[in-house]
Design a protein around this nucleic acid. Structure first.
Lengths: 213, 213
DNA sequence: TAGATTGTTAATCGATTAACAATC
DNA sequence: TAGATTGTTAATCGATTAACAATC
């Protein structure tokens, strides 16, 4: 069996191509070349073709790719041909923003329940969800057959929440708390760190200034 | 001159080491080895030493690193030995969450002004900031000597906001809108894409299932 | 001194880029 | 057919890992 390991960078770009293709499709574009995609998302045409080649042959030489087809293929590859139930822990401002974030729904993600252990938060309404105590977490995992949890609690509480998610059988965690979590290998973990990218910017700003001296 | 290009991955990790060192320092730890750091943030000891070696020799053989010193060095390298003024455009839920996000302040970032062009948003209070119309953007860039802008508007409005930021002289942009922005080379741009990492998770979940068949 | 740990070099690994034959 | 564009291979580039001399 041909089990070529797919670089994570390729998956990241695939997600971006996929969204770009949705936009083209919405605008009525029917055919697209690797060069068009490359220009639209800011990579090289060779990169686009190489990335797609990990998964099959989707284009026609001399012509390009059918937008609707390629869009569907990329969505399927990413696992987005079905919808995903998310459980969110942390009903602070970030949790609230994530609950109402349109970008998730547009890609087939639905936050089914929000949890927080702070007494002032429990019972609060966020959109059409009522914030629940963590006591009901396990029940909700079952009820919604959830596989993915989102952590949006302060750093100190994050590991405890992660442990709960692992214990209750979630298979993947998206962590917004700026700490390194300890998680068994069979659970997927990715971190979104809101300030790291900002620090890359300040690093680069400082560096450029230094070069001018 | 020794101008070794620093990989962006190294800068990213440096930001993470830096925060870990702050935590150690707060806990009263005075000395740390590359192995300790590696374990704390989930990389290899060799990686830690290699990353630091881009910037100098900060440790003592046989001993390790002085926590407080290394913390200060990493902060300085990242440009965080001074504070940074941020201008945020987009007073939706995400903008609100970013305004109140503690993680920024803890690293020396302060959002000085929030902007939105929607009539229902202008004048609204977010913490101690009043949402302003974009008409005052240029004035605020000057007033706060801002170098960095944050975009937290819907995808369709993002390019227009980016153009304004470039025109008014900002040097770096952190973009939360899920679109590829067109920006001149002399302005730094980084994107935080909230759903891409989620899609890496679903990709990996699907892939693992397939392997079991 | 013996043990520990750094800084650095060389080896390995992996990802990107360039080039081009295949083919519509 | 001529022009365009894919899929794929080979070459290049860059980052990570392993190993170890230096040295506290």
């Amino acid at each position: 069996m041909k089990t070529l390991r797919v670089p994570e960078a390729t998956v990241t770009r695939l997600s971006i191509y996929s969204r770009f293709l949705e936009r083209l499709d919405k605008n009525g574009v029917t055919t697209v070349s690797s060069g068009d995609i490359a220009e639209g998302v800011g990579v090289s045409p060779a990169q686009v073709r190489k990335d797609l080649a990990y998964f099959g042959e989707f284009g026609t030489r001399g012509v390009g790719y059918n937008v609707k087809d390629l869009m569907k293929y990329t969505l399927r590859i990413l696992g987005l041909d079905k919808s995903w139930s998310l459980l969110l822990v942390g009903a602070g401002n970030l949790g609230f923003a994530l609950c109402t974030y349109k970008g998730f729904n547009m890609r087939g993600f639905t936050i089914k329940a929000v949890f927080d252990n702070h007494p002032t938060k429990v019972g609060k309404q966020i959109g059409d969800l009522e914030v629940q105590s963590l006591d009901s977490f396990e029940n909700m995992v079952e009820k919604y057959d959830a596989k993915i949890g989102i952590i949006a609690v302060p750093p100190k509480a994050a590991q405890e929440v992660a442990d709960l998610m692992v214990k209750t059988g979630l298979k993947a965690i998206l962590n917004f708390a700026p700490v390194a979590l300890n998680i068994p290998d069979n659970v997927e973990l990715r971190n979104v760190d809101l300030s790291v990218k900002l620090e890359i910017l300040t690093f680069n700003l400082g560096f450029h200034e230094a070069e001018n001296i």
